[in-house]
Write a protein that binds this DNA or RNA. Structure first.
Lengths: 213, 213
DNA sequence: CGGCCCATTGACAGGCATCAAGTCCGGTGG
DNA sequence: CCACCGGACTTGATGCCTGTCAATGGGCCG
């Protein structure tokens, strides 16, 4: 089959996407899993509410991630748009067919199952650790490779600090103070709001590994 | 026959379980996923080591749970026996066949995928919360229904406090102090080591929900 | 009986949450 | 274009919580 025909066949899948505005809800915790959401651009967050009403951000999702995988019949968390989003919606039955094919063909689970679970698993490891600097730096190294890179070598960090705080289980004030600390140590720079420039990545990783200073 | 091959022989006897002693390792983080372990009796723990060397207990597993599900090619955590165990070993290919059958027949994933991921997800929610009492009580209510019940209505809690501490991301001293606090409040009793009696379950749940006192 | 590991208890200091106030930025409407 | 406004970020002072250290007790096993 000629290449140009292949690309035509795939084009509708690629180009058609549903868009959502920042703050919009993709699905609610407890709703029946009817669709799997696949991010095309933007950042989304998984949210759970603890019994005392605290908002907990359990994961951040980026372009290419699939959210809402029917590992149970009902969504286990709420998914919201952090930035403006473009995403695709797969019906559960279609997604299930792909899973079966993957299991039979390659003898393995869909990689996407992993991509939804892993962020939450890693969050558990991060917030188990003590010290604001350790947590913030462990968070940075865990997502830095998923962030869009700018021309000047900076990374765009399109996350409000209040969400970072809810993800790290610390207060927004502590996030702010820690970032200031990292600025003073010349490890990062923040030329604009929502924009972080990693100056000394080795230092960040040193802090994250607990061997700071 | 080389020793390393002998150790892999964990003969797949269906009906007869394999036994392991407390402290023994079922599999190591990073090893290739060749088997799924299904607990028949006893308690196991999932362990990860943070970059600075801290032991983190990411989950507890009980009778009926399946551990080591090949969501990735390599185990993502180490599994160890907390108490003496009896378990069964399923080869990865056999387990995969069961997954495919389940997906095609019932149109859903194996419930066991959920049972391995859920404890770690819930741990994230628990350790996000502040206050020792809240964490300990949230932990208790999350596992109490999985513990073996005694004749006198007490629950056996076969977990050393050091493991509870590693699970809750607090110190063993704090676990001890919190349990003492709960004893003084007549919410629990601890007639023996490794044995906890829930006297006032409503109080425990009230503490866990943050509406304590 | 002795040794070891776990549990327990107390004193102390440090870190982080809390509260409060002030600043910056983007958006909106005149 | 500018004034206004609301939300997010920033910064400081204060107190409590809990981690740390040290010592003791207690149960289990050799």
């Amino acid at each position: 089959m000629p290449v140009h025909q292949m690309s035509r066949l795939r084009t509708p899948v690629r180009t058609i996407g549903i868009s959502a505005h920042a703050g919009e809800t993709l699905f609610l915790e407890g709703e029946h899993c009817d669709h799997v959401f696949e991010l095309r651009s933007g950042v989304a967050r998984g949210v759970s509410v603890s019994p005392d009403g605290d908002r907990q951000v359990t994961a951040f999702f980026f372009s290419g991630d699939q959210i809402g995988i029917p590992v149970t019949d009902h969504y286990r968390f709420t998914a919201e748009a952090v930035t403006d989003l473009v995403y695709q919606c797969h019906s559960r039955s279609r997604w299930n067919d792909a899973l079966v094919a993957s299991c039979q063909g390659e003898g393995r689970l869909l990689p996407s199952i992993c991509t939804e679970q892993d962020p939450m698993f890693r969050r558990g490891l991060i917030i188990s650790r003590h010290g604001m600097i350790v947590r913030v730096c462990a968070f940075l190294v865990s997502i830095i490779d998923r962030l869009p890179v700018q021309q000047d070598g900076a990374w765009l960090l399109p996350l409000p600090q209040v969400d970072i705080a809810a993800y790290l289980a610390i207060t927004p004030e502590s996030v702010c103070r820690t970032l200031r600390h990292l600025r003073e140590r010349r490890a990062v720079a923040m030329p604009q709001r929502d924009r972080i420039m990693i100056i000394d990545r080795a230092a960040i990783e040193r802090f994250a590994s607990g061997r700071g200073c």
